[in-house]
């Protein structure tokens, strides 16, 4: 049996199982699952990057440019390996310093995407500017009704033509100062990640298990992806980067950055009507 046939058989089996469930149910779910719907697509950036934020390694980072390439999003009914819980409201300082506190706890290796419910596949890779004013509309996707719980963010093999990316899949520029040393000379940096870099962490450029706020989708709507560059930079050790200058920042590849770009928590999906 060819590899290509296996997923089809699985799909057939899943479809048959779904029919079985529908037959056994009282009918309440049957009306909300399986209808084809249009899913508009938007991408936006966590506004935290508009101001200086502190990384896990204790650097105060101020970004001036941030872009990422993407080629597709996929939506699933499998629960994400991490979930979110609500924390009390905290001061702005605590929120900026602690943007990870809301993350709950995962089980290693046990994420199962489950059934694919929708997708947005772009005819050509897209470069998203995290400093765009407001959400950016991307090509529409489609799907079926059902309970949406997790998503896949796909980084393409080839970057789109873009002045900031300049052939790379992700790029950020800015300055970093060790927290508490505001008078120290800043490190001016330009961090880049290519397909080979991210392939150290994920296969096929696919970041699996991203949280899609659990929603029972019954009709057309919009899937919005929020990109969190703070996650990209959390484990970057800027002490290893030459200081550079504001006019000529040091371009570097960094294991922390390329891993950060593939963190499932760097991409948060949600559905709205």
């Amino acid at each position: 049996m060819s590899i290509a046939i296996i997923p089809r058989l699985i799909s057939v089996s899943a479809l048959l199982s779904f029919s079985c469930l529908a037959a056994c149910s009282s009918g309440s779910d049957a009306s909300t699952t399986g209808k084809r719907i249009a899913l508009h697509t938007e991408i936006t950036a966590d506004p935290v990057i508009q101001s200086t934020f502190t990384t896990g390694f204790g650097w105060d980072v101020t970004l001036s440019k941030a872009k990422v390439a993407t080629s597709a999003f996929y939506y699933f009914d499998g629960p994400p390996p991490t979930a979110l819980f609500k924390v009390r409201k905290r001061s702005i300082g605590e929120r900026i310093g602690g943007f990870f506190v809301g993350t709950a706890w995962a089980h290693p290796g046990h994420y199962q995407a489950g059934t694919a419910l929708g997708e947005a596949i772009f005819t050509a890779p897209v470069a998203f500017d995290l400093f765009s004013a407001g959400p950016v509309k991307l090509a529409d996707g489609d799907g079926v009704t059902g309970i949406y719980r997790s998503a896949r963010f796909v980084l393409p093999q080839q970057a789109p033509a873009d002045d900031v990316l300049n052939g790379h899949l992700a790029a950020v520029e800015g300055q970093a100062v060790k927290h508490g040393q505001a008078d120290a000379k800043p490190i001016y940096f330009r961090l880049i990640a290519d397909y080979d870099d991210i392939s150290m962490n994920v296969n096929e450029g696919a970041v699996d298990g991203c949280v899609l706020d659990e929603t029972t989708v019954t009709d057309d709507g919009t899937i919005t992806v929020e990109v969190k560059a703070t996650i990209w930079l959390n484990l970057v050790d800027f002490s290893k980067i030459e200081p550079g200058t504001a006019a000529k920042p040091t371009e570097a590849r960094d294991a922390g950055f390329s891993q950060g770009v593939t963190q499932l928590s760097a991409y948060h999906f949600s559905y709205s009507k």
Partner: peptide, 23 residues
Amino acid sequence: NIDPSVYNTSGLPGATIGDFVIS
């Protein structure tokens, strides 16, 4: 400190081995 070439904290809080072990 976590070495990101070895450890992947998957966005969990902190940047040290201790933070990760506690999580």
